[in-house]
Simulated assay, not measured.
Amino acid sequence: MSIQTEITRIQSARNTLRTKAVELKISAGTERLDELAADFDGILNQGSVSAQVKEGETYTIPKGYHDGTGTVSGIAGGGSYTLQSKSVTPTKKPQQITPDEGYYGLSDLTVQAIPEAYQDVTAVTAAEADVLATKVFVDSAGAVRTGTMANNGAVTKTLDASTPSYAIPQGFHSGSGTVSITPETKSATPTKEVQTVQPSAGKVLTTVTVQPIPAEYITTADADAAADNLLAGRTAYVAGEKITGTMPDNGAMDATLDGLSVTSKVIPAGYTSGGTVALGGEIEEALAAI
């Protein structure tokens, strides 16, 4: 015989003992063989137990094994039965109500109201708006109420320039909804006119790249010319400001010096297009006569 066959046979016998032990109320039905042996060994052998009781009396059958030959018989008492009236208070566990010793049975049984400790709901703070719609609860007064909280489920919203915010509706949210934006990047080149860079419909600008200033708009911050450095009527930009020149335009300037009575020529301030200053024949003739 294989070991596995023996193990199966022993397990089958153990399960039979477990079933009987549960039936006899001496086991929970999960014990090992040695524990089951101890359980069965603990059964008292009461043998043959016999007793006589009078009307109105009870006899408690002792716990243990009875061989089946014992008897319990009654003694006639003339039909006088003493019954007991009892009252019990509900508890969280089952109760078995029996008459006290000396009573034949119960004449009536009064079950008191559920104690306040078992029905105290005064600590409840939930109101209809705190409980999901159609769900039922008991309020602090013990009254049955139905919730009114809206079940919004998964709420999804996309924000853009025309809708920069979203009002979250009151109620329950499943936690799987999202509020999001569609990002967009744009590029702009400076111009002489003001530009407003706006996102495309349904999008939100995240970055705007401003290109370098074009060559025709080059900075004049390092220019140092002044109005009197420019010809009258001419204009220029200096340090970002437009200036108009004041320098006179003297045109072509010529002069003849005779070396005797005219020995110099005053050059006026301003621009000249060129010219000549020369000695006249007088000085040559004077020199030749010496």
Rank of each mutant, 00 (worst) to 15 (best):
T5E: 06
T5M: 04
I7M: 13
R9F: 14
S12F: 05
T16A: 08
R18I: 00
T19K: 14
K20H: 07
K20C: 06
E23V: 02
L24I: 04
I26Q: 00
E31G: 03
R32H: 10
L33V: 08
L33N: 13
D39W: 05
S48M: 07
E55D: 06
E57T: 05
T58E: 11
T58F: 12
I61Y: 10
Y65L: 10
H66Q: 11
G68N: 02
T69C: 04
S73T: 09
L83V: 11
S85Y: 14
V88F: 11
T89H: 03
P90C: 02
T91L: 06
T91F: 06
I97N: 07
E101N: 08
E101V: 13
E101C: 12
Y104C: 06
G105F: 09
P115R: 01
Y118G: 00
Q119G: 02
D120Q: 09
V121W: 13
T122V: 05
A123V: 07
T125D: 09
L132E: 11
K135S: 15
F137W: 01
R145D: 02
G147C: 04
T148H: 10
N152D: 08
V155S: 04
T156I: 08
K157Q: 08
K157R: 13
T158D: 05
T163Q: 15
T163H: 07
S165K: 15
A167F: 09
P169Q: 00
P169L: 03
Q170T: 12
S174V: 07
G175H: 02
V179Q: 11
T191E: 13
E193G: 14
V194A: 15
Q195V: 10
T196N: 11
V197W: 05
V197P: 05
P199Q: 08
P199D: 03
S200N: 10
S200I: 03
A201E: 10
A201L: 04
V204F: 01
P214D: 06
A215Q: 13
Y217L: 09
Y217K: 13
D224I: 10
D224K: 07
A226D: 12
L230K: 09
L231F: 00
E241M: 06
E241I: 05
K242C: 12
T244P: 08
G245H: 01
M253H: 07
A255Y: 08
D258G: 10
D258T: 04
P268I: 01
A269G: 14
A269I: 10
Y271F: 14
T272I: 07
T276A: 11
T276F: 03
V277F: 01
I283Q: 03
I283L: 14
A286T: 12
L287Y: 14
L287T: 15
A288N: 15
A289C: 11
I290T: 13
I290D: 06
